[in-house]
Design a protein around this nucleic acid. Sequence first.
RNA 1: GGGCGCGUAGCUCAGCGGUAGAGCACUACGUUGACAUCGUAGUGGUCACAGGUUCGAUCCCUGUCGCGCCCA
Length: 1039
Amino acid sequence: MPMEKTFNAAEAEPRIYAAWERAGAFAAGANASRDETFCIMIPPPNVTGSLHMGHAFNNTLQDILVRWHRMRGFDTLWQPGQDHAGIATQMVVERELARSQQPGRRELGREAFLGKVWEWKAQSGGRIVEQLKRLGASCDWSRNAFTMSGAPGAPEGEDGNFHDAVIKVFVDLHAKGLIYRGKRLVNWDPHFETAISDLEVENLEVAGHMWHFKYPLAGGETYLYREKDADGNVTFEERRDYISIATTRPETMLGDGAVAVHPSDERYAPIVGKLCEIPVGPKEHRRLIPIITDDYPDPAFGSGAVKITGAHDFNDYQVARRAGIPMYRLMDTKAQMRDDGLPYAEAAARAQEIATGSAFTEAEVDTLNLVPDELRGLDRMEARKRVVAQITGEGLAVTHQVVRTDKETGETTAETLPLVEAKPIMQPFGDRSKVVIEPMLTDQWFVDTAKIVQPAIDAVRDGRTTILPERDAKVYFHWLENIEPWCISRQLWWGHQIPVWYGLDLGAEGFRDDEGDGDLDEVELGRLLNEGGMLHRGDVHHCAAEFAAVVAAFRDSLADLPVPLSGARIVEVADKQAAIETLAASLAQYNISQDPTGLVYPVWRDPDVLDTWFSSGLWPIGTLGWPEPTPELARYFPTDVLVTGFDIIFFWVARMMMMQLAVTGEVPFHTVYVHALVRDEKGKKMSKSLGNVLDPLDLIDQYGADAVRFTLTAMAAMGRDLKLSEQRIAGYRNFGTKLWNATRFAEMNGVFDGGRAVTRPAPAHTVNRWIIGETARTRVAVDEALAQYRFNDAANALYAFVWGKVCDWYVEFAKPLFDGPEAEETRATMAWVLDQCLILCHPVMPFLTEELWAVTAPAAGRAKPLVHTDWPDYGPDLIDAAADREMTWVIGLIDEIRSARAQMGVPVGLKLPMVLVEADAAARDAWSANAPMIQRLARINSLTEAPAPKGSITIAAEGATYALPLEGVIDVAAEKTRLTKALEKLEKDMGGLRGRLNNPKFVDSAPDEVVEESREKLALGEEEAGRIRVALSRLADLG
RNA sequence: GGGCGCGUAGCUCAGCGGUAGAGCACUACGUUGACAUCGUAGUGGUCACAGGUUCGAUCCCUGUCGCGCCCA
């Protein structure tokens, strides 16, 4: 049965993929024939994710490397999996619950909600896996990993080691002092009410305002404010009783701890060290804050003076830390103005004491709510309006003159208005929640990255890990060398709960053992329950993989306490509130019964979970079974290549480097190939809001997975963004069809008949010898390209070979050969060449090639499916230089004749006789060996040796001149033009060559081979020019 | 403002010391033993600009001008 005219991708792809899976073709170690391993860890897509172009690109490249190595016999593992995507998943499930009118997260409670998440995961979490299969990804799906596997509450089928790995690393790093808890400024998402990472923050330019306010100097003081130009001449001078501050966030003024100016700023030198007043809040409780110096303020920007609000701005935070300025938190977890704590008057009074030198602790400062009573509980935007109105009303806004012209009367009036500049400001938004992110001072867990970063830097510096392209290594270094502590806690439920338990701090300041007798009396008990340390969470905590393991640690920390508390039984309760109640009840009971055995010391677990990146940072070892010493871990770790997008070099790559080195002492992979972004055809980033997203699955439906893969591969120039257009994909779909039809031609001509085993033949005919050499060249080019991760070079080499050599020439040459004595060897050669095309193209176009592999199978069948077929290792030894030279000549001659015919307007179908005017021996041999092919392709019906007839056009080849008699047909003028043009081009080239060769400096200093090459080119050019001149003079006779 | 890139044929891009290539598009012709998702031939480039290094620069260096991305 003859083959179809085209490959039916939609029908064949699922069938072929299923066959691969059935055969276990992608299993770790499948087709291994040597000891070396090759392992790639998939960058785990979000479990909520669906395949987008970036995934398609990323996974195509991985699949090429994996298939290539597997065919070469490496013990290959492509490890797939998904990460649990804390926020995204929680968001998706909450949305689902809302849509199906089920109780929400808080109503369900933690455990029940997590049950829902697992349910969702079971139903929808496999989507991206199915999509990757459509792309043809040859992952070992039997090993599919998940960063939440093995977590408490995970249903059957979700068992695994990942939870243990994550917890173990946390516990170990904590024990080494590399993880700590602290109050730091973090990105806070007020919608999800959790800390988020920088990666989850998008900075967008939005329309904003810059207000200018006057902070009056304390006690009515004044100073001479003076501006100077570059030469030191005074350009402006006035006596001021205030310092001018610009801000885009007036509501945060309530939490100001200082005003800072640059130490070099002479304008404010007179008032540095003095106090100024925050011009907002009840008049009688206005706070005074110091004017300090710091390098952060830019004297050229605004007034040069900056308000310092350490709890609400990252820059201010650094300044406040340097200067020991208190950081007053103004907002709650929903980013509304705080509504807790002491009344404003009391809080402000205490803050004032601090500003004037009273000692303070971080914890105390955090309890002080400096939001005026009437602003408490307001949305921050509403608070902003009121603050601005208040300051303006009081005349403390900086003003400027605005002149208005009445349109009707033409009268002008000058008005003094507050100075509010409308200007674009960069504002952070949560990439999931889309709400404005608030820098927030909260208690969080941090990895002390500064202590584990060095090995990660060293490993790339000394080449144990290579980052490609090279410039991305710079990004890596830059980020690691300026690394910030890594906030790893998230106020979410979906994730690995932090393995830390807290106890009430019974030894905290505020508790006194009055008698010093080590025994508790009632008064002391009472104090414990009130203002004492119990209200300070976090001072006592212990970390271990499970509750049982922290009990001993708590027992030790209770040992110092008075009897009988020191012997209290340690029990786990839900949270701090429960702990306080439990302890109180226990103490009250003790008070009555005096039975110390009933005393309990309640502890509760940290409710927070770990950042998803903390888990995915352990991806390389976690997926291989660590901390268990599995055979896979021993075999495949360290892994080989990580293929990933440039946007997560530091977030993920750097963290994997740091964590794997910290845990195992080894780099996780020896090469990181960083690819660029897939954009739309206009170069715009694909985004849902722009509507320019190309869905890879749509494209696969339309053009087939192979076309999509080939396109992405051909465009994968290292470090350069891809501008993807559908037209391009269609073009590569056509390429697949071309290969398909070349095979179809072969099939129709009996190439695959007769149960011929496909081995490399040793043909006699030049054409067959030549194409074998071309095949070898291509194999070398493809291997070299892939070894250097030059995917586009590999794709282009394949394209040029299959289309440009095999289809354009070899198949055409074969047609006449099938009628001659070389028919059999030509069939054998073509069978082999097409086989090689399939093998070499398979990593890029797996489906179509596998299909053709089956279609062309000899009667005895194939030894293995293409996916497991051995990759060839032949090389330049197969290149027959003589055949090469001869075929170059033949192709050149055919080109010449066709070109001349076309330009002379000779009808395509018309066969012409040709005259051999002169030829050397090589040219004669080349002709006679290939005459039927030349005649066929150039539409020549005979060759006779004779002087060039009148009215003929001249064909100049290397070593020979031919003529096509076209008397009556030929347009003398056109032929003259054609030849003159050719001659001019030649002359131009030769002019350059002569100029060079006549320059003694060139001959002296250029490499010998370059000089030699120039001479040869010149000689050849002169020969050809000679022939053309002869032809031209003949034409002149005629004309 | 800092960093990293990029300006090569109409478009998308390779090349990166020896006088420019591909694919697509375009034009003309064309159903020749597979392929119209095709074939044949062709048009099209002071390699952004200005200096410098060199026997020689699209390629290396410096500067200018445009554009993009990342970080502030």
